[in-house]
Design a binder for these strands. Sequence first.
DNA 1: ATGGGTGCAAAGGATTTGCAACATT
DNA 2: AATGTTGCAAATCCTTTGCACCCAT
Lengths: 138, 138
Amino acid sequence: MTNAELLLEKGIRPSVQRLAVFNYLKEHPVHPTAEKIYSELAPENPTLSKTTVYNTLHLFSQKNLVTILRIEDEEVRYDGNTSPHLHFKCRKCGCIIDIFDEKKLRQLISLAEEIVPSEMELNETEINFQGICSNCRN
Amino acid sequence: MTNAELLLEKGIRPSVQRLAVFNYLKEHPVHPTAEKIYSELAPENPTLSKTTVYNTLHLFSQKNLVTILRIEDEEVRYDGNTSPHLHFKCRKCGCIIDIFDEKKLRQLISLAEEIVPSEMELNETEINFQGICSNCRN
DNA sequence: ATGGGTGCAAAGGATTTGCAACATT
DNA sequence: AATGTTGCAAATCCTTTGCACCCAT
């Protein structure tokens, strides 16, 4: 399935701008900021504005095509990978690393859910790590 | 130990303004925003500025007297309770509820630590929940 | 022609900064 | 006196808004 078809399936008209943002997110799974997405795409897409980047990211986030990451102090980041995974932020170099480990992830989430009193309705669980990445430890 | 002594112990001079902010955080464990802290304290402390509130919160956060909560989309909140606990945000009323459960929390953290590859140094694990609180479910 | 989509420029809001005055040692 | 602390006002940065134009149906 092409990206355009994917957008259509979610009820989003695949305009040039939206596709550009979507492709960028898929091809650059580094959790970019809105600013980063704009500045990278702008040269090749002179017909792109920052407003549209924001509009598009909001739209994608509503349709669960993008996850909003608030792991940073300063900036909001967008993650185009919506499969379940966790994030580790390096305090030294600032990079954000994805952690995939389905089995443990499931355990972790189910344990997390036990901790929430049953009178509450739990919809979302967010887990973030911080520390020093392997690169920076050397 | 008085709050003033507590600050001194952390190497922070307990000025009137800093004590006011610190007391407020301790007496209002509702994870207020900087704005909230300022507007609540300003009437009684005419000698308090928003700048000082920000300065103070940054200082406290450096000294681990305060935790910064980024569970909200819009605003940053400050938590004066530094004992380990989790946060649950109600999507209806917007309240943020603390969850204390030492035993499960320890399990959760140790599992979380397993999931992070050992090449990385893990310093902090942050877990946030979102859903509907018991009040709002009725 | 109509409704959604876009982009500019301006507005908004939260936080930070520069700097002079003040307090404390 | 020297250093740390404060507060005003201005600056900054990120994001949103208003509105006119454009494109696709």
